[in-house]
Every structure is written in C-alpha cells, then in structure tokens.
Design a protein around this nucleic acid. Structure first.
Lengths: 201, 201
DNA sequence: CGATCAATTTGACACTGTAAAGTTAATCTT
DNA sequence: AAGATTAACTTTACAGTGTCAAATTGATCG
C-alpha cells in the first residue's frame, strides 16, 4: 500500500487522467472520450492508464465518482442559498439537480447513463455516490410518513427531477428558449410541492 | 428513386440490418452493437451497411425509429386494456411506458440516451417518434387548462414516468425484487393522479 | 445483346482497447 | 553503499472498430 503521494515518474497520473477525461467529455461528448486521448493529454504513453484503471470502464467509473462529488456540491449549495424550510429544501435540491445537469451534461450521462440506466442508491462502496444519495435522503426525510419506506418519497422526487432534467437537456416541450423559471420547471415543482400531502403509496 | 421492393442481391438488406442491430442490442447491450457485426449477421460484407445508413449513427437512428414504433404499441395497448377514463388513460400510458422500458431497455437507451438525452417532441420528420408523442399529447389533453400550453402537463407526465422507468431499470429504491404494483410505482401514479387538480404553472 | 447503374465486395487506413514483455526509476534489504 | 525488488511506465503487437476508394457483381434498360 502506497500513500498516494507524488510517485515515480508522473506527479499524480491518476488525477491527471481523470481531469483529461472530464475535459474530453465536456468538449466532445462521450464519443470523444478514449483512453489513448487521455493518455496523450497527460503526456504519457497510451498503455499507461491500464495501471491506474480497470480499462475504459474503470476510467469512466472514476470520472463518474468525480461527477457525484460535483453533483453533491450543486445540491448543498442550492440548499444553503435557499430558504430553510423542509419544503424549500426539497425545491432547492431539485434546482441544484437541474443546474448540475445543465452545466455538466456529459458528466450526468456518464453518471447515470452508461453503467446501468439509473444508478443512485447507496448499494455500492462508492463514497461520492453515497453522499449524493444521503443528501436526497435527508431532504426527503421530513415527508416520509412514520414507519413508511423512505424510498417511496425519494423515488417520487428523483423520478420527477431526473426525468425533467433529461427533458430539459433534450430541449423538448418548450425548454430550449425559455428561462428556467418559466417553462415546465415550475409545473414540475408544483408536483414536488404536493409530495407528502396525502398517502404516498 | 426505387420502389424499395426486393432488390438485387439481398432481399431487404436494410431491414435485415436493423433486425440484426436490435438483436445485438438486446443480447449484449449497446456496446455489443457494431456495423460489422450487423453485416455479418445479415450475411453480407462489412462495408455493405454504409450504403443503407449514414454510418453507425444512422443505423442507431433507424433502430430508434423501430423502437418508437414498438413504444407506441405498448402505450396504445395499455390504453385499450384499461378503463376508458381520462385519468385512467393517463395511468395506462405510464404503465405502457414502464413495461416497454422493462422489456426493451436497450431500445429505450438508444431512443433517449444517445442522440441527446431526452428526444421526444415532434421536432423532426421522424414519423414514429411523432406518433408516440401524439399519443402522449392526446392523453394529456383533457388535463390542459383552456388556453394553456400543453407542454406543461406533458412535461409533468413525461418527467415522472421517464424518470421512474430509469429508476426502476437501475434497480434502485427497492425496485428490484418488488413487483411493479407495490414499490414506488403506485406512489408515482399517485402524483400523476394529482396532475391538473390545481394551477399547473 | 450490350450498356448502364445500383448493390455489394475487396482492400486499405486510422483509430480504438488490451495484453505481454521490456525498461526505467524509486524503494527496500542487508 | 550496493544489489535486489518492485512500482510506474514504455514499447510492441494484435484484434476489433468505422470509413473511405476502387473493383466487382448482377439486374435492368435500350
């Protein structure tokens, strides 16, 4: 076990490769992402990444983890910037979710689109992913009836905001030109506002 | 302009390639889909597909169109099988949507996941896609307040059911083992039931 | 029957991921 | 301090991919 500090040749190749991968992703979408290009950007031979990731899927996983970190930041910042009400916080994470998607659609795609369609719950040892989920869970908690499964409310919120984010990114239903505040976003938030006002299941 | 009937060498290569592509997709996911493998399955040389599709993206587009056809069938069949109430029809297309996703996750991925994240509205000359959208539109219509933009209600429905379908496919929030009827599906339908019961925007 | 032309094949190229073997440089051991 | 060990990286090679240009095949038309 090494202490993950500065290593032999390259300073911190693993990090450099992840960063290069994110850059490629944001520049040219998922198709532009390749191990060899990442290696070239990091100034290293094309086979070097194999020693840091389990192939291309491994690099994508690492990029997705980075994405979940940024994703968590968007949500917590949105929470901090908004009103401190249970219901306002629910709206805030949705706003954070959408803004993350708009700013980092490539990351979103990698996080949710490739390794299975909707990876979210803390089933893995993935620290970053679990953190994002815990934010969702804690914000949803006040709306979970006593003794009920928290997943119910979480699924309602996640379905709505994830679905809408994809919709918005696709530019459909009049989402292209209108500012976020108008557009169907407010209507979706109106549904969010109704969560927990009746038996949920 | 040819009449698209039986041609020179192969009977109907274009169709055969699409079918091979769908098979590959359902067998091994998106990564297993390649032009060369489709050609091999159709018993044809590796460069033949180029004359029928604009490269791999073109083949994927054709597969997606086929997917939209099947998708439409799922929704109309669900409508026909259910109660004939405005609100029951709304639930029915959601059920059809989910069942399509469960049965054809590869197609769903290709339809919505690759060519942009959420392609849905009839912005294109794509007949199949437009048909699916028209079903959604007609079922949503009764819940659109007079003089309001139909997109609002459509976005609410689409966000919920598309988001939930991805969630379910990902096996998160207790969606793996439970039957559809339990699980968060009913809770999501409860939100669908609340669409149009108040100002939507 | 011969010309034409679309459909398909052949061959080649650049690019991808990946594996094996070789090389360098830092660390460990004595 | 010198040799052995090992991690980080390179080099080389191979199979698979999309794509293009040039042949070739086979049906159709005059």
């Amino acid at each position: 076990m090494t202490t993950a500090k500065t290593r032999h040749h390259h300073g911190d190749l693993k990090r450099a490769l992840i960063r290069a991968g994110i850059d490629l992703l944001e520049e040219g979408g998922l198709e532009a992402l390749s191990l060899r290009k990442c290696a070239a950007r990091a100034g290293v031979s094309h086979a070097a990444p194999a020693h840091h990731f389990a192939g291309l899927p491994g690099l994508i996983t690492a990029i997705a983890e980075e994405g979940f970190d940024i994703f968590s930041k968007y949500m917590t910042e949105a929470i901090d910037a908004g009103e401190q009400t249970d219901r306002a916080r629910l709206r805030s994470i949705c706003r954070g979710y959408l803004q993350f998607g708009l700013g980092h659609s490539g990351l979103l795609k990698v996080m949710f689109g490739e390794h299975g369609l909707g990876v979210h719950a803390p089933r893995s040892d993935n620290r970053e992913e679990a953190e994002a989920y815990l934010i969702l869970r804690s914000v949803c908690a006040p709306f979970v009836p006593e003794g009920e499964d928290p997943h119910i409310v979480e699924a309602q919120v996640w379905s709505l905001i994830h679905g809408f984010t994809l919709l918005y990114l696709g530019g459909e239903f009049g989402c292209t030109d209108a500012p976020i505040e108008d557009s169907p976003f407010e209507a979706v938030m109106a549904l969010i506002d109704r969560i927990g006002t009746q038996a949920t299941g």
